[in-house]
């Protein structure tokens, strides 16, 4: 009799600690869809690029304004930017819609201190990585951009894992590893991107969906 009460106490302490510090409504299904968008995007980029390489700027340092000029002047520059932007928007919109749906089902609010904290902690490594990629472009180190995005995205996920479903850490570690591996295969960035942002998301999303959402 008494022990049943204590068991309930322990359970409710755990639930409360998690609920108040972690945002649990991240949707696995949106991970799968984001992965599919990424693969479509990678295919589109492959077609646009054909056999031409993205031109490097040379070994000289380029200020950001010159960088933009070179980029816009490049025959595939705008098309590639458009593909990237579309994939990103589609993934974010899908993610927000599905997460909102899941939050509603679980009776969680989508915009509370736990989700704010999650976004904040995810954004810091991600924005650092973004800025660092611009710097790499400034020095003409275009081949390192793909590895850098994967590494910093992975670090962002690892950092965010403390504030949401802990499993996201493994997706982060996987991305960091293939980011590091891809530094040894410069010129194949698109394939590693497709693997990290596409295939890994689909695998991760499926696992999460099976684990948390199927029975919801």
């Amino acid at each position: 009799m008494e022990s049943k009460k204590y068991l309930d106490d322990i359970a409710s302490i755990k639930t409360m600690m998690n609920k108040s510090s972690r945002f649990m409504s991240i949707s696995g299904l949106s991970g799968i869809l984001a992965g599919i968008y990424a693969l479509i995007g990678a295919c589109a980029a492959y077609i646009v690029l054909g056999d031409q390489q993205l031109s490097t700027i040379g070994r000289e340092y380029a200020p950001v304004s010159r960088l933009i000029n070179i980029y816009v002047g490049h025959p595939s520059g705008t098309k590639l930017a458009l593909i990237g932007f579309t994939v990103l928007c589609a993934a974010i919109i899908t993610g927000v819609i599905l997460t909102r749906k899941k939050a509603k089902k679980q009776g969680e609010r989508i915009w509370d201190s736990s989700s704010k904290r999650l976004i904040y902690n995810f954004a810091i490594p991600l924005c650092t990585g973004g800025a660092f990629c611009v710097i790499l472009l400034q020095y003409g180190l275009i081949g390192l951009v793909a590895p850098t995005t994967l590494i910093f995205y992975g670090l962002a996920l690892i950092n965010a894992s403390k504030f949401t479903l802990g499993d996201i850490k493994f997706l982060g570690i996987a991305n960091v590893i293939i980011g590091l591996v891809s530094t040894q295969f410069i010129g194949y960035g698109l394939y590693f991107w497709a693997l990290g942002f596409g295939v890994f998301h689909i695998i991760y999303g499926s696992i999460m969906y099976n684990k948390y959402e199927r029975n919801l």
Binding site: K19, S20, S21, D112, S113
Partner: peptide, 26 residues
């Protein structure tokens, strides 16, 4: 008590929590 247990659980993992948020959580 369930509410006191809840308050302490939340405050163990959060530096600071405001009244409204606690109310909703519990």
């Amino acid at each position: 008590h369930r509410i006191r247990l809840g308050i302490m659980s939340v405050l163990m993992v959060n530096e600071k929590t405001d009244f409204k948020e606690l109310k909703e959580l519990l």
